[in-house]
Design a protein around this nucleic acid. Structure first.
Lengths: 196, 196
DNA sequence: GCCAGTCTGTCAGTCACTGCCAACCTGTCT
DNA sequence: AGACAGGTTGGCAGTGACTGACAGACTGGC
């Protein structure tokens, strides 16, 4: 949470934001597949090479910020006091993410719909989420009173994967309902069906 | 389970198997990323174009048969008698898949390790699994006594996603243990931690 | 043998992505 | 002001996955 130090850093942030905005606009106009990186670069006013320097892959134009959110999630869960149950700690982590995201719900919905509609994007998204799960393992193991071995514990992995699965189900349904449903409620329903 | 009808069909199957075998061998030798489709085609004795006609993508050389297994899973779950609980029905589906796969455990381990070690393959694999989940939704909804609406039910999705999550955790741990662990046991542990 | 339909190989092309190098911009030291 | 060092950008050529189009080969039915 450090203030954007140098002026140079801020202009860089502006360039990144500009590229993402033009990319999302183009994806909305023509669809993800039909849009080329050359188009994005040209309309954003930078070289194609620079777009790849900033984002690495076309998919990261959409899924890029997931990276940072993962760290937020892990530290939020780790920061929960020990008397909070594992399930509540994980839920708290996800609510933290929701409030930490500085996007309008419309924007979140737009991006989510893009991801859910596009197999290649969806695949990449799932894989990134799996990294979140991996980095959560030690945190949850400690919370469940399990010694962290070199290989993760099946119980910890199961709990983490289940919470993610329910979050995922809730997100997908939220998108399918056009953002009109209560995602939190859907999550509770899904988890209750599992644990009840 | 129909007998491979025409001779032509059988030789076609042989070609497909030959391509997969050479591909896996090359991946084992040089790694997945470092192996080009041109190499696979050349060593398999077919044109590069034909490889793409059979498999569509490089990833499908490894994940291709997942497709068929998904249908086996769905029909196996649907075939469970109604008095079997939802959880048991899903577990039965997965054990059916395990026995239906006509590969040696070594082969399964080799393929699984390839998938888990390779982000691009892993991503594609997860996305395919998600399609299994989608096609299971109506089956599970009926079993849980839920009317199938146009949008899936959160409870059904949660249960399905959870079982898959635990299967996934168990598979990954099984691979991390070099195939020496009991995958079934790991699955039970993970699910017990969730439902207990 | 002949014809229709299917399968295969070849070729050229698109697009994501990368390494390389020259130009450039920015702050610093003298 | 001018030289210098660091990092940044753009252009360019290349690789590799993947696709469409076309021509030849191969198959089964007549």
């Amino acid at each position: 949470m450090e203030k954007s130090s140098t002026l140079w850093d801020r202009s860089r942030q502006a360039v990144v934001a500009e590229i993402v905005d033009t990319a999302l606009a183009l994806f909305a106009e023509q669809g993800y597949e039909a849009t080329t990186m050359a188009q994005v670069a040209k309309r954003a006013g930078v070289s194609q090479r620079s777009v790849f320097r900033y984002f690495g892959t076309k998919e990261d134009l959409v899924c890029g910020e997931q990276e940072a959110l993962g760290e937020v999630l892990v530290s939020a869960v780790a920061a929960q006091p020990p008397e909070v149950s594992t399930w509540d700690a994980l839920r708290a982590g996800f609510t933290t993410i929701l409030t930490a995201s500085n996007h309008t719900p419309q924007r979140v919905l737009e991006i989510s719909a893009l991801i859910f509609d596009n197999p290649s994007l969806h695949a990449r998204y799932l894989e990134k989420r799996l990294r979140w799960q991996r980095s959560l393992v030690p945190v949850i193991e400690k919370r469940m009173g399990i010694d962290s071995g070199e290989v993760p514990d099946a119980r910890a992995m199961g709990v983490i994967a289940t919470v993610f699965a329910c979050v995922d189900a809730a997100s997908e349904l939220w998108v399918r309902h056009g953002g009109k449903a209560d995602a939190f409620e859907l999550y509770e329903q899904a988890l209750a069906a599992v644990r009840g």
